[in-house]
Amino acid sequence: MLSAQNIVAGYVDEINILQNVSVDVHKQQITSVIGPNGSGKSTLMRVICGFLKPKSGQVMWDDKDLTGRPSHTMAGLGICYLPQERTVYPHLTVEQNIHLGSWTFRRDKARIRDELARVYDLFPLMRERRKSKAGDLSGGMQKILEVARGMMIRPEILICDEPTVGLAPIIAKEVYDTIERLKADGLTILLVDQNVREAIRIGDYVYVLEVGQNKVNGTRSEFETNLHDMIKDWLQI
């Protein structure tokens, strides 16, 4: 289980973007975090993945303390983080991009070969485009490429920050399908999304943040039956 407890964090001394937030992510579930702009969703992801050191609070991954651990060590622990911005290497080919996903086990040639074959099987489109420059792919395909690259390490958990922002609905759907498919394969997923309906639709458990604090949380069924009441404060539906 990934557990962030009582996180307080911010980019400057005086201002705390997160003012005591706690989130638990259970294995083999999709946990969605939603909330209005500025509620601290992305900051929470950055804290969990080591890009921002919390001022207080603790991040645990099973029995390992992740608090303040450097961000580049996350891949080695089986944590795959997909931030909101694009992270492909635009001038490298699709295959070179995916190949770099095996950085943490780069000495193991056999494993690289096997994982590459497996990832191509999971994402046949990537195999088709493997010679293309990553920068030439469409936005949605770049997002899929990021996921594919992340899958090289056979992560235990995928942390996705707004994977569909800026994508056309039909392509966004493809991304959500991919996430659900990965969950079905046994992956644990922490998803941050602006797209409330989709986040609730695919999430097993949902957290709502507001101005850096936990607002409400509950299972999908609770949200589905009671959505309007639970989030009416900030959602004008």
């Binding site: 992270t87 490298l92 943490t104």
Partner: peptide, 14 residues
Amino acid sequence: MATAQNRVGSTIVG
């Protein structure tokens, strides 16, 4: 090369 092209993208692969 990866770092030159995308620092965050490089950090997340380790």
